[in-house]
């Protein structure tokens, strides 16, 4: 039995490019990776939003209304439903004049039991040090 920890670090804002959404969809794919692994082996995915990437976490996104696309917000909520560890950098939120009330924190309508964690960058840095591999989006 072995575990490989992957850290998905999102640094770019949403919708301008495909990157943030691909970060989330690839992280979510950690839930079905077992078909490629031996019994007992797992891949975990932690997600961190830093820099301009914190803008992906704004709530009440209108992607369906404006683009007929699933919103990045809905992908974050799906990540919470799957119990992924989702971190948002507090200092970068501050830089944009944002706080926890401006971003998606939970997803009760999805049945999610875990919440987004707004943390100082030092905690994100610590998470990254614990990962086997980092993927920057």
């Amino acid at each position: 039995m072995a575990t490989t920890k992957l850290g998905f670090v999102v640094t770019r804002p949403g919708y301008k490019s495909e990157n943030p959404k691909l970060a989330l969809t690839h992280a979510i794919a950690s839930q079905s990776v077992e078909i490629y692994l031996k019994d007992g082996d797992i891949v975990t995915a932690d997600i961190a939003f830093v820099g301009d990437g914190v803008l992906n976490c704004l709530k009440d996104q209108k992607a369906v209304e404006n683009y007929d696309l699933n919103s990045t917000e809905s992908h974050i909520k799906m990540s919470l439903l799957l119990d992924l560890n989702v971190l948002v950098c507090r200092e970068d939120l501050d830089r944009f004049g944002l706080s926890e009330k401006d971003i998606v924190i939970d997803a009760p309508e999805f049945g999610a039991e875990v919440e987004v964690k707004v943390v100082p960058y030092s905690e994100i840095s610590q998470m990254m040090e614990e990962m086997n591999h980092l993927l920057f989006f």
């Binding site: 690839h26 950690s30 078909i35």
Partner: peptide
Amino acid sequence: SMDWYLGSAFDADRLLHIGGE
């Protein structure tokens, strides 16, 4: 599907991720 990438990463000695534009 995307889980193939994660499956490959599982036993990789090094993972080099080159993001999109």
